[in-house]
Amino acid sequence: MAFLEVSCLKKIYTTRFGGSQVQALSNVSFSAEEGEYVAIMGESGSGKTTLLNILAALDRPTGGRVILDGMDLGQIKDKEITMFRREHLGFVFQDFNLLDTFNLRDNIFLPLVLGRKSVQEMTDSLLPIAQKLGIRDILDKYPYEVSGGQKQRAAVARALITNPKLILADEPTGALDSKAANDLLTLLGEINRDGQTILMVTHSARAASRAGRVLFIKDGEVYHQIYRGNSTNEQMYQKISDTLTLLATGGDVR
């Protein structure tokens, strides 16, 4: 069985006052192996965010299953779901979601503190990560004192520090300028090469072109996927652009 197995995922939202139903996901199935770097692309309303929320155990699917490293997300009790998220998943958000009452170090420590780790353990695990992400010298700074790129790197450190099985990134470059975005993507690539499984939702073809595989979602279904194979980033970018054009014009790539 694959490391991450998503099968026949379905999500239907019912509007609050009964009546109309909206189908966000109709039938999504895909799998990813450990150490893979998967990007998910799609237009607004295609169901990307719903998919990510279900993968993050923030939302429950109407039908279908998600299995991460042998654990069925649907079987986890409500009470344990927060702990599950804390221990097995890492999150990187578009708007960083750093707390401005904490300095960067404490922001990164947050999930560990919640997991009741000892101070020694926390310090030990922070060092290599901070080194790698190049934020060692700014750990004592507060989020409002550093640049967007630095903030996002701190957020990545926070996601990595629990040693998660899977990193879920939601438009991680969305709020960054192109230089910072590029740096961050390079970093994510390096982290992936170290063996970290990453799943990234993005609009940006540039960001997706760094991934090993790109899934395209349209109308709540996986519509198409591109494997990197031996392509360079440039070639990958080209492929993605082509697919996006086709998607937009409604052509059939299959």
């Binding site: 927060t82 958000f93 926070r158």
Partner: peptide, 10 residues
Amino acid sequence: EIMQKVGMTQ
């Protein structure tokens, strides 16, 4: 909200 996203229980 952020704390809950990062893994704090209700």
